[in-house]
């Protein structure tokens, strides 16, 4: 009984456990698995990351915008869905130019609202990919 009172008393002078999150940022650990970042200039379009991704959150969709060039012969465009990604880092382990073309940053993914490309728009992209 007395030990409980002593504990309750010492607790009065302890720092609160709660982090004041929205006001102060949370300290990230070194290994935090955040957003996957892509650098178009470094990519060699081997499509290994697309095949490796378990949920299929990386798609190289054929489109007209980037003109076909030496590296990108089929004029593919990298598309990434952070609301489908499971952040398992499998794509980066598959990437032959990891740390250059594809990296995992410690940025946290964005909160989506209506109008973001989450589900139905992504389904259209998947159909585009399958159609070729």
């Amino acid at each position: 009984m007395s030990s409980q009172f002593i504990k309750a008393f010492t607790n009065l002078f302890k720092k609160p456990q709660t982090t004041t999150y929205p006001q102060d940022a949370i300290e990230r650990t070194e290994n935090y698995r955040g957003l996957i970042e892509y650098t178009e200039n470094e990519c060699i379009y081997c499509l290994k990351c697309e095949k490796a991704c378990p949920p299929g959150a990386i798609l190289f969709v054929p489109c007209e915008d980037p003109v076909p060039n030496d590296k990108n012969k089929k004029s593919l465009k990298y598309e990434y869905n952070p609301w489908l990604c499971i952040y398992c880092t499998e794509c980066i382990r598959a990437c032959p130019k990891a740390e250059l073309a594809l990296t995992q940053s410690d940025k946290k993914p964005q909160i989506g609202v209506k109008g973001d490309r989450v589900n139905s728009e992504w389904t259209i992209l998947e159909q585009l990919k399958k159609g070729v």
Partner: peptide, 11 residues
């Protein structure tokens, strides 16, 4: 969660 947004790994 990812699977609630778009199916995630269960897609």
């Amino acid at each position: 969660g990812s699977c609630t947004c778009s199916g995630g790994v269960f897609r």
